[in-house]
Nucleic acid binder design. Structure first.
Lengths: 351, 351
DNA sequence: TTGAAAGCGCTACCAG
DNA sequence: CTGGTAGCGCTTTCAA
């Protein structure tokens, strides 16, 4: 089913059919009607590949995310997509699953589709990829990772500030033994978040001790990390999580072990996803404006106007502390050995 | 950057370049190397539109889901995608947001892309759409909705059975006043789930009363529905939710109002998403094997082998009851007026 | 083992 | 206002 068929049936040329389908207002309305009728009768759907090929440019944006399952990514995706749709753009998404190999193949795919722009909301990276991306003409916006270069914008959240707010708050509550739960992508010594945690802890509260564990990004990963943490002989009074999603997993494990939050241990998240309000106890966290991020990314993806000059810029976003129920005063004494007993006591009290 | 450029640089014809890029083993390896080198130096990426156009067939599958935010849909999508990747297929997803208008435009898009198959994991429907889809040659698999026709397979869950299991279990616990929380797509009188609830309640427990409320599919929608329900003068001893995602919202509202689960009211979900284990209390629900569904859908999307004959089939999936912490014995007496007081009592006891 | 060339379906420019 | 037609970049016979 192609243009020719429609043209034939309507008794016009393919050029005219094309005009009708593209709303070029030069067509006589009677002709237009005839074409539309023919197209309808044939149940015709234009071949978008042929169209893109002929046009030479696309109105499709590519979106790469590390983990769509994490509502944080989903929210950005949704905002981005809705901004795109509002301006007549389509989007295609790809989940990289934190695997840089998957990232590479997804990028290849999108370049192959000749997307008009590429949003990389990912934590993983690949050296060669940067090169390839750099050479390609397509506008790119990175979230969080990526060195700003020519025609590559970078949107990032000021984690340092967010971390400070959380640690500061916890410190004011008397916490002196804090643990950080991250996922594998925040594990490496390069990771800003990991470093930030350590530095913040160190500078903020000289007497404070820090510990780091990691799991996969997700409910189960958070739980697993918490399990490890509790099994170690580091007994934190507070657990700072790299994001809310994992924090919910942590919460679950603590509850499982009969540890009360925030009475026994305080827990914090990051992102302020919807779920943070709906879990129990509701999470104290730091708000990251996903909606705004999505829009900002979209705007910086367009080949638009004068924004072009400020391309290669870096956009910093300031997170805000949101206090809910998962944080409280640190317990007076925090000795070792208490772990198991506390756990048992809590459990029997609960059931 | 096109084939010609690569061909020129490698001193061969475009045909040869094409052969190399497509792994046709007829090319002399020295030639092959030269081509690869040229392609690499030029940072060449084949134009996939041109490719699809020339090939006339695609290895891309389209996936339509109503609400990617709901982990239920996400899980199916993930399973489907991973099955597809394993067999060398790409996928493109579209979120319809339960809006049939969005469904229609997404379908149009995918037909335009000439996808090799289309998976519709959606609750909404559109009359004309069915027609258009029917006329198109592309293989389609519907989940849950859609009348099985030629080359259209239908995968569906036996909700009736699932509902029976839940209602039966609740009944055995002594519940006689049950409410159903659905989302707008399960609201209409056509909806199987709504009907099923009513019928099951009626048949199962003649003395039982049922009530129905609805919100948007999601955490907030569940909470909203619960709020309405509690404000009404129907005082349920159990709340059955159309899915786990909304159930978590319901849980939140109950907790907010100081109503204990399952002591005061029992709550059940549906789907058995991961979150159902991680919320508090953990949800009693019915398991739907998303992994298996995703795979099944993929298999039925392929133009493969003899499966073709059994196309137009309907595949029924049997859900299993999963009992966790959100359900318990019904309270002895269930009079009205108790709502507010109970709420206050619960609240003070909690804090 | 390689090259020449005819499309794939659509757009857009040039005439009329 | 409409038709003819040259590509868009790649695949795929058909010959060599």
């Amino acid at each position: 089913m192609n243009l020719d068929a429609v043209a034939k049936r309507a008794g016009v040329s393919t050029a005219t059919v094309s005009r009708v389908l593209n709303d070029l207002k030069v067509v006589r309305s009677s002709t237009r009607a005839r074409v539309l009728k023919a197209a309808g009768e044939l149940n015709y759907h234009p071949n978008l590949h042929a169209r893109s090929l002929a046009r030479g440019k696309s109105r499709t944006l590519g979106i790469l995310v590390s983990n769509m399952e994490n509502p944080f990514f989903f929210d950005i995706y949704r905002a981005l997509e809705s901004a795109a749709h509002a301006r007549g753009y389509e989007v295609v998404v790809a989940n990289t699953d934190y695997r840089s190999e998957q990232l590479v193949s997804s990028v290849r795919l999108m370049i192959g589709w000749r997307v008009a722009g590429l949003a990389a909301i990912v934590s993983e990276m690949d050296a060669n990829l940067m090169q390839a991306l750099n050479d390609s003409r397509i506008p790119i916006v990175f979230y969080d990772v990526g060195t700003p270069r020519k025609n590559i914008t970078n949107v990032r959240v000021d984690y340092r500030k967010g971390m400070k707010k959380i640690a500061g708050y916890l410190h004011s509550l008397g916490h002196t033994r804090m643990a950080f739960v991250g996922h594998h992508s925040t594990l490496g010594p390069i990771s800003e978040r990991r470093k930030t945690f350590l530095e913040t802890i160190a500078r903020f509260t000289p007497g404070t001790e820090g510990q780091i564990v990691a799991g996969a990004d997700g409910l189960e990963g958070g739980r697993q990390a918490a399990r490890e943490l509790l099994a170690s002989n580091f007994h934190p009074t507070a657990i700072l999580c790299v994001n809310d999603f994992m924090a919910v997993g942590v919460l679950r494990e603590l509850r499982d072990q009969g540890i009360r939050v925030p009475n026994d241990i305080s827990v914090t998240g990051f992102d302020n996803i919807k779920l943070a309000e709906f879990c129990s106890p509701a999470l104290t966290t730091v708000h990251i404006p996903r909606e705004q991020i999505g829009q900002t990314i979209f705007e910086n993806l367009l080949p638009d106007s004068k924004r072009d000059q400020m391309s290669g810029r870096e956009i910093l976003i300031d997170p805000e502390l949101v206090v809910r129920e998962s944080t409280g005063l640190a317990r007076k004494t925090q000795n070792s050995a208490g772990g198991k007993e506390k756990s048992l006591a809590g459990r029997s009290a609960n059931s």
